[in-house]
Amino acid sequence: MKCRVIVITSGKGGVGKTTITSNLGTAIAQLGKKVCLIDADFGLRNLDLLLGLEQRVVYTIIDALAGECTLEKAIVRDKRTEGLHLLPAAQNRTKEAITPEQMKEVIEELKPNFDYIIVDCPAGIEMGFRNAIVAATEALIVTTPEVAAVRDADRVVGLLESENMQSIRLIVNRLRPEMVQMDEMISVEDILDLLVVPLIGIVPDDKRIITSSNRGEPLVLSKEPSLPGIAIKNIARRLEGMDVPFLDLMAPQDTLFGRIKRFFGVSQK
């Protein structure tokens, strides 16, 4: 089976790239695929923390490149999720510690062993971004319904198009349907109008995203179903080519009861 290399990027920081990466990686592994997540955020690594693997990181991608260990040894296997692996970034180096050529080399070496390699891109459009996109043929752009995030997402889409990225798809994160309903937040349709990039997922805002990151357990692992968890599992299935309809997040807002509740501010999460 051919390995797919996907980069998760956004331009702007703080839109939930790493949270999406950790959950999506877990969700794809849950579908029985062999997944390697690569943290490309050198100096500001966090993917290990969100996956709850921070205590198990011994070597990093830099050590492997320096020949201090094999690439296999640097990879951490997630014991909770069969098939999920992490290649950690170095925390004590800067984004210039590695070149795009080296990154490509590493990914080429990993490819025969995995179904999916997912690269968590750092914020910005400098060297770290170049490193993260170099070997990818597919890109998932994470944005939130905020002006700065949408603008930066557009910039990144432009850059990826000029690099001839084969597939670019959009994830709208942290949507708050009740705010869209009140016309106080740009809607997914608005974002699609502006960016003109095919949509692959809509993830609603939810405080459980924070509690799950506190515990280092991706939300998709939780036995209790949650809307963001389902939304991310749906993205994994769409990546696998399944035709999964989008969750109707606006629906609960449309009932009369919902309107009354919203009017009195009861539905505030």
């Binding site: 016309d183 809607s187 608005d190 109008d193």
Partner: peptide, 8 residues
């Protein structure tokens, strides 16, 4: 005018 429209 709601903020959604000015944002867009």
């Amino acid at each position: 005018k709601k903020s959604r429209h000015s944002a867009k």
